[in-house]
Design a protein around this nucleic acid. Structure first.
Length: 106
DNA sequence: TAGTTGACGACGG
DNA sequence: TCCGTCGCCAACT
């Protein structure tokens, strides 16, 4: 049953606008999980049929692509971000604060 | 049933 | 300022 917080995390991630990124902590705080690890765990368990979720837009608080290794190829995550206009250098998002998107009602 | 893991974050020394 | 440790809670073995 996907009534777990997993679905909530997926839903929030899906709300991340094109060309924007957010952090595990921001999602955790928004969902009231109280722990960023919950978000990381949810994405870690991200099933293939949910691959349409823009998980590449979720990075750690430092703007590093901590989950790049979980994508097919190491550069696929950075490549997608750059494709969206987000500068990524050395697996780190440049001007992270500029592209940061908080998962609020918006 | 209990222990370990995990794409993190905050705090203390 | 940098490094190390603890906490968070659910899922997996």
């Amino acid at each position: 049953m996907r009534t777990s917080y997993f679905q909530s995390v997926y839903d929030v991630v899906s709300l991340i606008p094109y060309g924007r990124v957010t952090t595990y902590g921001a999602i955790a705080d928004f969902l009231g999980l109280g722990s960023a690890r919950m978000v990381g765990w949810a994405l870690n368990q991200l099933p293939n049929h949910e691959i349409h979720i823009p998980a590449h837009r979720v990075v750690n608080r430092n703007g590093f692509l901590s989950g790049q290794l979980h994508f097919g190829t190491q550069n696929s995550m950075a490549q997608r971000l750059q494709s969206e206009g987000i500068p990524v250098i050395d697996n780190q998002i440049q001007e992270f604060n500029k592209y940061f998107w908080k998962p609020e009602v918006d």
